[in-house]
């Protein structure tokens, strides 16, 4: 599963938003239940993810 899918499905225990520009965020997820982590880079407008720029597989 891609990290952006885990984000949409709320399948994570920890979520970190690291701002790289004023509109782009790297969101890192940790899923303790499955022992997996991953991150994706997204464009964010008013708190909403509007475009996925990079997407890792949760592993």
């Amino acid at each position: 599963m891609k990290a952006s899918q885990a984000y949409k499905k709320d399948e994570f225990n920890s979520m970190n938003w690291k701002w790289v520009t004023s509109s782009e965020v790297v969101i890192t997820l940790l899923d303790n239940k499955q022992g997996k982590s991953g991150k994706f880079k997204a464009r964010v407008v008013d708190g909403k993810v509007t475009k996925i720029l990079e997407d890792e597989v949760m592993k």
Partner: peptide, 12 residues
């Protein structure tokens, strides 16, 4: 039970 939820923000 795995229902913990942590939310973090970082700006370097």
């Amino acid at each position: 039970e795995g229902n913990d939820k942590f939310l973090s923000v970082v700006s370097e």
